[in-house]
Structure formats: C-alpha cells, structure tokens
Design a protein around this nucleic acid. Structure first.
Lengths: 193, 193, 193, 193
DNA sequence: TATGAATGAGTGTTCATTCAT
DNA sequence: AATGAATGAACACTCATTCAT
C-alpha cells in the first residue's frame, strides 16, 4: 500500500507482476489476481478485456518503465559521440535494473510465457526504436561490431540481467563489482577492434 | 520420420518439446501431449510419475544432449591451453546449437516455467561441472575477466542462443556470419585486457 | 417438494446426504452431487471450499440438528434429578431419530469415511459437551455404572440407531415397541446395581 | 511376513485390511493393494474377480474368523443353560475382539462402505445363524427381553467394539475394566426383569 | 463501478479393468 | 501364474469468461 491514489488498474498490474515473480508466469490467474487486489474476480474484466490483454499490459508497463527512466533525448542527440551515447544507454539500463531488479525478470518471463509468437515491440524490429537506431548508427560508423543489432542488445540485456539477478538473490554483494566492471565486459563484446 | 525404434517414453518427451516450442511451456498439458503421441492421456503416467517429472526429464534430456556432444575430456585436459579449451567449448555449444536450434530455447523455457526455484545442475553451482571449473581456472589465471562465472557463461549462452534463434527464424542466413564472427564477440567479452 | 426457499448451499448438502444414504459415503462425488442438484459441477466450489469441507458441513449440520431439537437447558439443569435428565436425553435422541431416521446413519457413515482420525465434537472428548457432563455427573453420583462415558453413550446411540433403522427399513412397525421398551434396555445397561 | 507359506490370496486380503485400517475403506484401490503386496496391479485379478469380490472376501474372512474362534458346538448345546451360553458367546466375542482389535473395525468399515445395500449374512436374517437361534430361544424362554434379536446383538457388538477400540487407541488400559465389568453392562441390557 | 453467481472447458491424477505375452 | 502396457471413465479442482443486478 505505498500509494494511496493508486487506481485499481495499476493495483491489478502490480498483482500480476508479484505473482509472476513468486510463481512464474504460469501461476497468473484472474482468481489469484483478484484475491491479491481484494476485488471480485469478475472485476478484472472491467479493466482488461481479457487475461492476455492484462498480461500484455504488464509487459508494456515494464518496458515503458525502462524507457521512461531513460533520457531518450540524449540517446538520440547526434551532437553527442556515439560511444558516449551507448555507454549512457548501458548505464541507464544498469541503473534501472539495479533499482528494479525484478523488472527485467518479469519482461523475460512474459516473453517466455507466450512462446514463439511474441514480438511486441521487439527491439530491432521496431523502426521507431531509438536504441536500435543508435546501435545501427554505431554499426554503420564501425564503432561496434558488424553483427545484428539483436546480438548487441542481447549482450547488454543478458549481462545486466544476470548481474542484477545475482545481486538480488544474494549471490554476491552489490559493491563487489562496479558499473565499470560490468560495462567493460559489455563494451568489449560490442566494440569493433 | 526416423522414429521407428523410438519408444513411447521418448515420443512423449518429443511431444513436450514440440509443444514448448509452439506454445510456450505453459501450453504443456498431459492431454495435449497424449493427443500428439496418439495415446490415452492416462498413459502418460505409465512413463512419468507426474507432469513435473516429465518436464524435468525433458530438461535433463536437452542438457544431457549438449554434454554428450561435448568433448569433456579435452575440456578438462590441463595439458591444453586454457584459452584453447574455452574456444573449444564455445565452438561445441555453437555447433550444437546450430544443429539443434530449439534445444537452448527449450532449456530456457523450462527454466522460466519453474520460476525462481530451479537450479538443476546450474552451471556455477555444480562443483563437478567441468565448464565451471574451466572458467574458474581461467579467471584465476587472469586469462578472462575477474567476474562471476555466471556472467561469462551467460554471454556464451545468450549470444549463441540469440544468434541461432535469429537463423532458425529466418532473420538472416546462417552463412551471413561465421563462427569466428560470433566467437569474436564472446571472447572479447570474456577475455582480460 | 417443500424446497422452495432453500438456497443452493442447503440443496447441495441435501444431495450429499441422499447419496450417502443410497450409496455409502464413498459414493459422494462432486459430479454426482452437482447432477443431483442440477448445477454445474464447478458450482459446488462456490459454496464449499473443497469436498472435505462439504462433507464436514453435512456432518456438522446433522449433529447440530440433534442439538437444536434437544432441550439443553433442562439437561444441564441441576435442580432436576440426574436420572430424570438422562431419561430426558434418551427420549430426545429417540424422538429425533424416529423423526429423522437417516440422520444417525449419515453421521455414522461420515465418521466411518474419515477413518480413525475423526473426533469432531466427539462426545467424551469435548469438555463443553453437556451430555458428557451429565453422564460424568451420573457416574460420580453412582447412579450409572463406573464405566467410560463412551460406553454409556455407545449404548444409547447404538440401540436407538439400530431400532430406528429397523423401523425405517420396514423390519417391524414403529408401534410394535414403545419408547419405554427401548429405554428399559438402555437404562438397564447404564444404571448401577 | 509372519507366515512363510502364506499364499498370495491371503497376502492380498491382509493388504486390504491394512489399508482399511490406515486410510478408511475408501482408500482401498487395486493399485495400492498390489504395491503393498509387491505384485503387479493386474495380478489382483488372478485371485479375485473384481474389486467388490475382493472386499467381500475380506469381510467374509473377518466374520469367519470370529466364528472359527467360537465354540459353536457349545453355543448350540441345549443341555447347557441358555444364560450360560449367552455369557459364553459374549465372552468369546470379547476375547476375540481384544486379541484382534481391528477385526470388528474392519467389518464395520466395509459395512459402511457398501451403504444400504449390504446384508451379507446379516445376523438375524441368517436362519442358520446359531447365535440368532440362541438369542431367539432366550427370548422365547423370557430369559432376555422381548426385543428384536438385532437389538440384543447390537448391544453386544457395540459395547465390545467401543471398549476394545478405546483400549487399542490407548484411551485407557486394558486392565482398568474386567470382562465382568463389561459383561455386566451387556447382560443388564439384555436380561428380562 | 462493482459484484456474486454461474458455467463449460480444462487441469493433473487415480482408478478398475482388460489383454497380449 | 504372472506381468506390463494400455485405456476410458471418473475424480477433485481451477480456469477464463459472461451476465444479471
């Protein structure tokens, strides 16, 4: 009960996220969600067309959260050096992931749930995606390797997710590795030469 | 259809794998599995104690497949240079993953399904694990970065998985990138200096 | 068909009771219960948490029925002679059992179903139990035999149950034996000297 | 493994009895029985036509056990006083029940399982029944009350069963009450005047 | 906006029984 | 005499979804 003004829609999404983290994505049911929120089961359908729409909305919410904590303007500011912008991007994902260690997990879980079918705003498929554009530009400028954008993004996502999951599961302390340690690995993977 | 001598047990596991790939892990039900194999639903329980045991067995089968195509002797042969052995390991995972593009996906899906709890033969937790030992040795020898083994393994797994998934989904042709291209990225991420 | 105002909960309990009488307690299944009531099987779970809760509720209902037709105040009224009160108690059980010949059967069946474990409000285990108190007092006053309360209650229960079952199965007519005939047997068994 | 020569048929019946005592009559399944005996499930059908036949045979076995430890000759020996013979009968049931505290429980459980339908060799329905004859004679001779035989038998059965169950459940020690104590209650219930 | 009642399809699992070997 | 494989029916229970109020 952090926020008082939280509306039901958000509470429902929170419940879904909590269940995904606690029981995996297969554990999500309207029954459990409603129970957690403290509303009638049928009430879920007032806010979401059906279960899929609910889960999609949680997915969208989490991905948008990352974007909203991201300084998109600077990422697309071509007056800034590409390398700097990439580092900035990684830093932002890193900071976000440390602050919200479950967020990436939720995203990944929902992706897994939907099997092959899901491509909701998949990074390099979305032409509007600023990050994809940034990386494509970096590839063209031969700053990073001549490899698919998805590989570059995968390294960023995977490394940070593994790292923050390790921390949140207590496998090691947060201060045992600095951002620079982690970034070094990511950047070495990406950079050309 | 080379499945002639296949016994039911294997057919059932195949059906599970196929469903996981088609619908995600949450789509697996004994009903669907049985229908796919062409047996009565209750028959599944002749071969597997319960659904979890079935899924676990599929998970184990896929992980063992990798191991069985892996030359463990050479990976643990200390007369061979550590760097060479790591390259050998990556090459083996790469070859396997290209030949069995779904295998890593299945493994990842089952992991996701089981939520937080799963650590079945988790790489750096298993003291007997040869790869973990190899990487640990490489870390000690300062050949690869002073980072958790899980980060190193994550880069290998994630990069190869993303790459072979891209290929099997037709996002680009297999010959568009060589093993060396992919290995370069992985090795740059891992190696010290 | 006097069941007009009956709500579903009660209808379901009635169905369970009817099945127990017709097929024994092992014959109770949610499917059969629902079919008898004319609702969907899943509907049973709207009214009862699970099957055990349903059966327990039927048990509780039958035992409460006896209590509610019993004049507890007089049974515990110490201004009344103990012997009189015991006779009153037996009379009440007798009247109830004649009016509801299946009730004791249901109670006994459910007890049997649950195996050894059941002691729900078991007579001489429940300190609040008024009848147990009455009998204990009678034992202390040497009015009835120096034997366990459960033996005294067993004679009452068993004799009346056998008798009313005989009647309801048409083995003999109700007026063939008076209450006094039956009570004589019970009281002879119980009384001291 | 008391007896070495025990044949399977008997072992299977033993398993059924054990399950009834442990889980109640509803817990009996061919699967569990076979597992307990250490044979294949289908093997049960080599010895018993079906499950009902198996359970009936256990019922018959237990009732026959009582009879076989009973000195039927003396019970029907008309040179012996009726009162003496009844006491003898009660004593025999008592001894048997103390030695085999589960036997009466099993009989009662199986009766309950089958619901209304069961009348397998019900005491006073069986014209050959020696005990019924004895009691009928006693009624005619006005030695015991002018009440249905089933009431007389019920008092015997119920009182002894309650008593021995109390003992085997540790509610009190066996030597706390003598046979005479118990018999007194039973005989007072039965005897005329 | 909110609810509770309702339902049919689905879940995993166990069962009694049969049959070829 | 014994088995393992097979099956269809049943089981308790959960689900997503709808609808009248």
């Amino acid at each position: 009960m952090k926020k008082k003004d939280m509306n039901k829609q958000v509470k429902i999404q929170d419940a879904v996220a909590a269940i995904i983290l606690a029981e995996g994505p297969a554990g999500v049911s309207t029954t459990k969600v409603a129970k957690r929120v403290g509303i009638a089961q049928s009430n879920v359908y007032l806010y979401f067309k059906n279960k899929q729409a609910l889960i999609d909305s949680v997915y969208a919410r989490e991905t948008n959260r990352i974007l909203s904590t991201t300084d998109l303007d600077r990422l697309s500011d071509s007056t800034i050096d590409v390398t700097t912008r990439i580092r900035l991007y990684v830093q932002q994902v890193y900071d976000y992931s440390l602050a919200n260690p479950d967020s990436l997990t939720i995203i990944q879980q929902i992706k897994a749930l939907n099997g092959q079918g899901m491509t909701i705003s998949a990074a390099d498929a979305d032409p509007n995606n600023i990050v994809a554009n940034l990386l494509t530009a970096a590839i063209d400028a031969k700053v990073i390797k001549q490899l698919p954008v998805s590989l570059h993004m995968g390294v960023v996502f995977s490394t940070i997710h593994t790292h923050t999951t390790n921390i949140s599961k207590g496998r090691y302390a947060q201060d045992q590795y600095t951002f620079d340690d982690i970034f070094q690995m990511i950047w070495d993977a990406m950079k050309q030469d």
